[in-house]
């Protein structure tokens, strides 16, 4: 079973490496990722959001909705832990 799993994992890894062969070079300033959408964030951040830190401006403004989702994930996880564990905590206290 371990051998089967190992082969499976190696296949998955090999396929992922096969995918990287065509990728833009690492650290290439002309790669599509650096050319298509992101220049606007870099050039216009101060003008449009008045924030010199680009990560902040994207996180809280351009893609602020993702951050809403992110906080919801935290809330979900917190509620999930309460849902799962709360009852048993109370029971333990009574013991």
């Amino acid at each position: 079973m371990k051998i089967v799993n190992l082969i499976l994992v190696l296949c998955i890894g090999g396929f992922l490496i096969y995918g990287t062969l065509d990728m833009p070079r690492w650290g290439d300033p002309d790669s599509p990722a650096s050319k298509h959408v992101s220049p606007r964030y870099i050039q216009k951040t101060v003008e449009e959001t008045a924030t010199p830190n680009m990560v902040t401006s994207i996180l809280a403004d351009y893609r602020g909705y993702d951050t809403l989702g992110e906080t919801t994930v935290i809330f979900t996880a917190g509620m999930a832990c309460i849902l799962l564990l709360r009852n048993s905590i109370r029971k333990n206290r009574n013991d």
Partner: peptide, 15 residues
């Protein structure tokens, strides 16, 4: 733009 690294993946990874 080439003077600063791409901020988008950093934002995605914070999430």
């Amino acid at each position: 733009p080439s003077a600063y690294i791409n901020p988008v993946p950093h934002v995605l990874m914070l999430t």
